[in-house]
């Protein structure tokens, strides 16, 4: 009876988020790190070096930078979005 009442409550007041979404989200991150043999520190270093190179050419909005690994159909890709403040090349380039 308690089970049924709880499910009734969940239906009326909104159920807690399903645990399978946690499982799936955690797995996605886990599998990327299993496949990419880089430590978080190495990933940070890579990100910094890449940003250094980009900043030599354009002015980057540091706050909006997105830089992450993603996995689609078993293949890893590096997804990055770098908002640019000014497109004109810098004098130092």
């Amino acid at each position: 009876m308690r089970g049924i009442f709880k499910k009734f409550q969940d239906t009326v007041f909104g159920a807690p988020p399903a645990s399978k979404d946690d499982a799936k989200q955690r797995l996605k991150v886990l599998l990327i790190h299993d496949q990419v043999a880089l430590t978080p520190a190495q990933l940070d270093a890579m990100r910094e070096e890449i940003m250094d190179v980009i900043s030599r050419y354009v002015e980057v909005d540091d706050n909006g930078v997105e830089f992450r690994l993603s996995r689609e159909d078993g293949a890893i890709s590096l997804v990055s979005n770098v908002p640019v403040r000014r497109v004109t090349a810098r004098a130092s380039a």
Binding site: A15, S19, K20, K24, K28, L31, G74
Partner: peptide
Amino acid sequence: MVERGDMMNKEDILEILAI
């Protein structure tokens, strides 16, 4: 469990393992 969302379903698993 799949119906209640407490177990990954076939599509979830195939999306991850891709075989």
